[in-house]
């Protein structure tokens, strides 16, 4: 895979990881975490681990985002700290 795309994905992974734990809006954090999972999925593909990438795309970017949004919807949208 092209090196520039790889570097862009790695930078996005780090940015999304830091953003998802610092953001105050929990719904936004859930969405950013979904983006993080999808970037990780692309990284797995670039390392030729297609089975892991498939799992990451379905579980990480799909179901866990829905579960987190459901939890935010049923609790509170703002963090306490």
């Amino acid at each position: 895979m092209i090196l520039e795309i790889k570097i862009a994905m790695l930078v996005l992974v780090i940015v999304c990881a830091v953003a998802s734990i610092t953001i105050k809006d929990l719904l936004g954090a859930a969405v950013v975490f979904g983006t993080y999972s999808f970037m990780m999925c692309l990284l797995w593909v670039s390392m030729a681990a297609v089975d892991v990438a498939f799992t990451e795309a379905t579980i990480g970017a799909g179901i866990s985002t829905v579960l987190m949004i459901a939890a935010v919807f049923r609790t509170t949208r703002r963090t306490k700290d």
Binding site: V50, D51, A53, F54, T55, T58, I59, G62, I63, V66
Partner: peptide
């Protein structure tokens, strides 16, 4: 091809969700 029980099960759950 890539895939298997785990991924297929997650996709089935996604259809219900």
């Amino acid at each position: 091809s890539p895939g298997g029980g785990f991924q297929g099960g997650v996709l089935l759950a996604a259809s219900f969700i």
